[in-house]
Write a protein that binds this DNA or RNA. Structure first.
Lengths: 236, 236
DNA sequence: CACCATTATTGATCTACGTCAAAGTAGGTA
DNA sequence: TACCTACTTTGACGTAGATCAATAATGGTG
């Protein structure tokens, strides 16, 4: 537990408009600040929580990239998401009081932690916060259902095109380049997320490269034609 | 808008322990009752809302069975769930103020409607309600991620086995038989939900029948060996 | 710098599921 | 009751993606 430094106070946080404080009044953010455990740094490979851990807190990514994976009892495992700055980790655990997935850092970064009971109490005081929290939960549902659509009805090329466009869009939203991507995750992680084998992911990246849609250099990917990728999805 | 009859008042509702009132104190339920639009009946085929509709209310199934489908702009469509008594409809719409899926009744039934702004206000007053609502949202996330796991890592037989066991479990929880199932949805609906073609669904049901795991008579299915179905999932 | 472990690419082959097509069946309606 | 439509079953065949296998690149570490 680090002592909060100034920059990690919500009111002064560089990502406050992407995070919980978004849309809150200044005095509301002050109140929020009293309940947050401010930035905790994590190193690549660190787990924030693991499947089965008791649920106490939600986390919001303040820097870096995380992946969440579900592990089924029969040994099956599936990457359920990649979380960037401002995105919540742990929302699935509210339902039962224990985590259903594990969250692992794919690069060094930091998170802010908030005890869930405190978030709920604070929600009683701040309708704005309550509402924006509901939106976050609902947004996660929409995201998951989007992945269901992808897994249930798209072919491998379409899935990968959608994945790359999604990463690019989210990067752009965070004022990072929307064409220069660094895939912090392995081909196997991508494959697991997309319901494909790593060989298929690799093959299709090469194919996109050959078609002039991407420049692929290991984990460095540059999107040369987002229209081309969109067309792949549209033309099924 | 029907005038509420006695039986549809939450405090007297036959399914109150499956629904929003679950876990609330009597006086809290009274308050809730003042904000619910009580039972509205729906006929088979009726749509509660459609993709793109403005979001005002959540619904809870009080009787019958619904399906929700997402339609992608490119004409792709995917069944995202089948909702039974006590389950919410419309949670995805909170995020953006418009519905991302459509909800259609698969048999005659009824729903209770609650204006979302009223539910939020009520949540400010009733921490219990707030908390149980958060759990419902989170449960939907867990459910969706379970489907992601199914779609991303299971083979056709495993998906169908998991689907049937899930229906049976949820029926049992509602004090209906856990072995005698009536599939209110078409093979195509099932296929869409499971990322399979209707022919595959049909073939696998026949195969399960031949293996003595099921008795299949059109939409009437009796589970003869749930252990057998579980084994199929476990033994990938 | 050289080493090793991890990750990625590419090819050859196999197979689960999709596609296309033809009957068969059930349920609602006149 | 008989009809018609919508749904279901089953077969023959094709293909996208998995599997198996062999190199080839990385990148972190002593």
């Amino acid at each position: 537990m680090n002592s909060p430094d100034l920059k990690s106070v919500c009111g002064c946080c560089s990502i406050k408009e992407l995070c919980i404080p978004a849309g809150l009044a200044e005095e509301e953010v002050l109140l929020l600040d009293q309940h947050m455990n401010h930035r905790r740094t994590v190193r690549k490979g660190d787990a924030l929580f693991r499947t089965g851990d008791a649920f106490r807190s939600l986390y919001v990514v303040s820097a870096g990239l995380f992946k969440t994976s579900m592990l089924h009892e029969d040994g099956r495992t599936q990457v359920t998401g990649f979380q960037m700055t401002g995105e919540y980790l742990g929302l699935d655990a509210i339902s039962s009081g224990k985590h259903h997935c594990e969250a692992v850092a794919l690069e060094g970064g930091s998170v802010c932690e908030i005890a869930f009971d405190q978030l709920e109490s604070l929600g009683q005081l701040l309708p704005n916060l309550q509402h924006s929290f509901h939106k976050s939960l609902s947004r996660e549902i929409v995201r998951d259902q989007g992945v269901m659509l992808l897994l249930g009805s798209m072919r491998a090329e379409e899935r990968l095109a959608a994945f790359l466009l999604n990463l690019a869009k989210r990067s752009a939203h965070r004022r990072q380049s929307d064409s220069e991507l660094i895939l912090r995750m392995t081909r196997e992680d991508i494959g697991s997320y997309l319901g494909l084998k790593l060989e298929t992911v690799s093959r299709i990246l090469s194919r996109f490269h050959d078609q002039g849609l991407l420049e692929v250099q290991g984990r460095h990917v540059r999107i040369l034609s987002s229209e081309g990728l969109e067309r792949i999805i549209r033309d099924h």
